[in-house]
Design a binder for these strands. Structure first.
Lengths: 232, 232
DNA sequence: GATGATTTGTACGTATGTATA
DNA sequence: ATATACATACGTACAAATCAT
């Protein structure tokens, strides 16, 4: 779960967290080469912890690590990326369903409260605040599953996709639409309606199954998962 | 995908593969402490590559790595383990559904051929051969999804659970039952019947949703995922 | 295609934190 | 509670491979 949390107790952790942050934030774009020495210098540490951090980042999919060559920020091709988006849709949907069935009363109330707060942000057009709250919203649903492993792989998938998520809440329309979709998710979860929660979340994430089917090998110029609306 | 494949080009890889093998095979039991020096000596390398290998193994969940303390082979508690089993059920089911929709004709024929070969193993009672073929069977379904990411996380989940899988094919009855369940999966995939493939695989894996629900916090002494039949 | 410069891969020593007496 | 033992965390040096010329 703590893919991006907890205070770094060791050099490796702080390097890992900061490099991950730079990649996720778009500071380091996909394809960017990562020089061990450079990173070591930047962080004021030796290459050893940098190398270990890079190994871990490679495991989580944020960087690619080829032997004897510079590590690079992962740059998956369209078909791979499309596949990850599709899997994320299923995982998020699964999480919503689990949460509908398993959330504690406290968690349900917290989710509802957060959702209400977000309504205010929509009214005020506070896109930055909403973006942040949106993360918390989805994280709350991961936690609500009571399944640490499901929460972990879903969060990791989300993080891995972050560098490729261009759609933000820059338009008021999207902000409102997002919140309306959240409403359906929240209502389903609150009444413990698992299938409805799954369906609502699937709609929210904007599953583009068709795009995947195309990429699977048949056609060429179909709408890709990249072009489709990508959540938030 | 290559969580346990490809020839090791570097020390780190060979150490990682061998330690993973020992854990998965049960050679190193959960809870076993892993001493860097000891491993380095065993493999005839220095501690540096061992450390990097351990980091990667920790990312994949096979070992636990606490700062300034010995690494240990991961020993998840019952509730965590139960959660992983449940997620694996869903992932395998998802894979079967995707494969039903996306497998190439060649892959469909190969799956059918493998399944037929396994029938022979059942008749001869060749449990060892069947166990091996069973891995290939599931791997073929991962590959058939045409979704590298889904294949990767499903395989990784399977590997992660391997040390806790006690049910093997020691009884002829289980062998026959397994193959009968496979038949349903294969038939559904061959006729591109996605829902049926998902359902058949779900049945095969033996989803124990109830056990999870219990572990979620309500009851105590319900049948755990550990006690339930665990696949193969 | 060969050679030198550069970068990664590995070895090993020391510092630091943890556990135990 | 303090000290001692011990394992890991990190830094530095060297070897091997890659890339550029």
């Amino acid at each position: 779960m703590d893919a991006l949390a907890s205070p770094p107790q060791t050099s490796v952790e702080s390097v890992r967290l900061e490099v991950a942050r730079r990649i996720v934030s778009g500071d380091l774009l996909p394809g960017t080469p990562l020089d061990e020495r450079q990173l070591a210098a930047d962080f004021g540490v030796s290459r050893t912890p940098v190398r270990e951090a890079l190994r871990v980042l490679a495991s989580s999919g944020l960087v690619e690590l080829r032997a004897h060559r510079k590590a690079i920020v992962t740059q998956p091709d369209q078909s791979v990326l499309s596949g990850i988006f599709i899997v994320m849709g299923h995982l998020e949907s699964l999480c919503a369903g689990f949460s509908a069935a398993a959330m504690t009363p406290v968690q349900r109330r917290a989710l509802e409260a957060l959702h209400d707060d977000m309504a205010e942000m929509v009214r005020e057009g506070e896109t930055a605040a909403y973006t942040h709250a949106n993360e918390a919203f989805h994280n709350a649903i991961y936690e609500g599953t009571q399944n640490a492993y499901l929460a972990e792989i879903t969060l990791n998938t989300r993080i891995r996709l972050q560098p490729f998520r261009r759609a933000q809440f820059h338009q008021l329309g999207r902000l409102q639409a997002s919140h309306a979709e959240h409403t359906l998710v929240v209502e389903a979860i609150l009444r413990a309606d698992r299938p409805a929660a799954e369906a609502a979340m699937r709609d929210h994430i904007g599953l583009v199954e068709e795009a995947w089917h195309v990429f699977a090998g048949d056609a060429q110029d179909a709408p890709s998962a990249m072009n489709a609306r990508q959540e938030p």
